[in-house]
């Protein structure tokens, strides 16, 4: 499973158990739609750090960075590119 597929599966399992991972639109606003709230962002960040090995700085807790699967993918891509 790719990293973004694992994140997609995590979001559905944790926050939207009624949605099948493949049915979660990549551009759906996760915050406006109420799927992720403030505690949810902390859980998601903990998952990214602990399970995906991605370091998230305190400044990177902004809602915009986790607003959708596309946004999360862009955040990870940016970090991977910087690390390379």
């Amino acid at each position: 499973m790719t990293q973004i597929a694992r994140i997609r599966a995590f979001i559905c399992a944790e926050f939207a158990p009624d949605i099948q991972p493949q049915d979660l639109p990549a551009d759906l606003d996760l915050i406006q739609s109420g799927i992720i709230d403030s505690l949810g962002v902390l859980k998601l960040v903990a998952f990214l750090e602990d399970d995906c090995g991605i370091a998230i700085a305190p400044e990177e807790l902004d809602a915009e960075l986790y607003q959708s699967l596309d946004a999360i993918a862009a955040l990870i891509d940016g970090k991977t590119a910087n690390a390379a």
Binding site: E60, L61, D62
Partner: peptide
């Protein structure tokens, strides 16, 4: 402090 809208991140920290 920080950017506008960053209150949650700052408080968490």
């Amino acid at each position: 402090i920080g950017r506008e809208g960053q209150g949650f991140s700052i408080l968490d920290y």
